[in-house]
Design a protein around this nucleic acid. Structure first.
Lengths: 245, 245
DNA sequence: GAGACATTTACGGCGCGTAAGGGTAA
DNA sequence: ATTACCCTTACGCGCCGTAAATGTCT
């Protein structure tokens, strides 16, 4: 079978078949004139290649998987499942953002500053069980913010801006200065009042997020460059002191 | 502000900023020495660029959107929402496939041959309301196949293979030969018995899917090249005759 | 003059689509 | 000789990471 017919049967393009030959994914027999020839064996392999491709595997990995036993392939499937799940969750988060913007206006985007959902995401890398503990907190925030109107968001953001301004004013005093710690307390109180019960543990998680996740860092550093890093240190200092509730 | 500092504050790489300059997305001022200089205005623009980037917009589109009014931007957001929703649904479908394979084994993949969920997907392009009508059918199939074990699937696939073999044998007689129509009827009956009530309308939809969606075409043409196209014609002939139930 | 910054040019990676230019089979 | 295939080579897309070679500020 020549390449055109093989492509037609497989429902893919000739270019694709040549590409697979080039990257060593599927080498057909080659006749005297240089024509590629696909037999039953090649079509069977091609079939499996396209099968994995539909499941979202990159071609490089398919190349490795082809000659592995079924058990190893299932293992790869589990890995793939994890990857795709992450992608899906990421998309869901973006979709939530878009919906919120369409409903409440562009300004509401600052919500990210206290978004625990990203906290789950981040924590997964360190402690897997931690991820689920924030589920309830997340729902709490979702419920409460659902009732907020445009004006509420306006106020919410003013408040956070005030605290950030104050914290920025403390940056020379150091992250463990009494005044700094006072404003960290205010921040914790603000989140608790406006969104969800912000425990020291969650607060610490948010602090880490502020420096490790660009989206948060940007939001905080926007008006006061360097504040995110400072705030993280201040939060750590605050949580290490015995006076947190 | 020089490029390094700007990148640091924005939480992105220097390379990214230069890239944005190169593609005309964000032109900073340039000093005598060729150094790029980012002022408040540029940082504000950059901020908005990154905002849209987080929402999954391609840079090219961001470039256009930047100078549009908020209303047009919201319109773009709605479009983006649609795109991302499709991507998400695609991922969900793959995830379903993977789960089914992990549970029932690789062989079950042939299920696609009568997967109405893809039918929804396809119909969307032609008639939007049609999409929802298949929701119930889909759930029906989900429920019934949930109880199938490995052996059940074995039999299910043997049955479909038999019908396909018979249909392939009819290919010379033409798509409207009595024998062909008989086996089309068998196919409809088979789907109804095994998965969901297959109305002529759904059957017709499946027929179109067999030639328009590569995944289906491949599954059918695998053993009998050309059968997919033939089956579509036969289904059309069958549904045009008054003898369908 | 050393070191930390800045500059430019350019390849690579993914999965092919899409020419451009030319050989082969029936 | 035409037509319908086949071949190779190579650019392009999207978004930068990662050199490499060189200039500028303090």
């Amino acid at each position: 079978m020549k390449i055109g017919r093989a492509a037609e049967i497989a429902g893919i393009s000739v270019r694709t078949l040549r590409h697979y030959d080039q990257i060593g994914l599927l080498h057909p027999d080659v006749g005297a004139a240089g024509y590629r020839s696909y037999g039953d064996g090649e079509m069977e392999t091609l079939w499996r290649i396209l099968f994995f491709r539909e499941l979202g595997f990159p071609l490089g990995q398919i190349k490795k998987m082809l000659h592995e036993p079924a058990a190893a392939q299932k293992e790869a499937l589990r890995g793939q499942r994890g990857l795709l799940t992450e992608k899906k969750e990421h998309l869901e988060k973006i979709l939530t953002d878009i919906d919120r913007i369409l409903e409440k206006g562009f300004e509401v985007n600052m919500v990210k500053t206290f978004d625990v959902s990203a906290l789950e995401e981040h924590k997964k890398q360190y402690a897997k069980e931690a991820a689920e503990r924030y589920g309830e907190t997340y729902r709490q925030a979702q419920e409460r913010t659902a009732h907020y109107g445009q004006e509420d968001w306006q106020r919410v953001m003013e408040e956070s801006q005030n605290i950030f301004d104050s914290l920025a004013g403390c940056m020379q005093r150091g992250p463990d200065a009494p005044e700094t710690l006072y404003w960290v307390g205010k921040w914790q109180e603000y989140i608790t009042r406006r969104f969800y019960s912000c425990t020291p543990e969650i607060l610490r998680g948010l602090g880490e997020l502020y420096v490790s996740d660009g989206r948060f860092t940007r939001n905080i550093d926007k008006t006061h460059p360097g504040l995110a890093a400072f705030l993280k240190q201040a939060i750590d200092a605050y949580c290490d002191k015995p006076h947190s509730p």
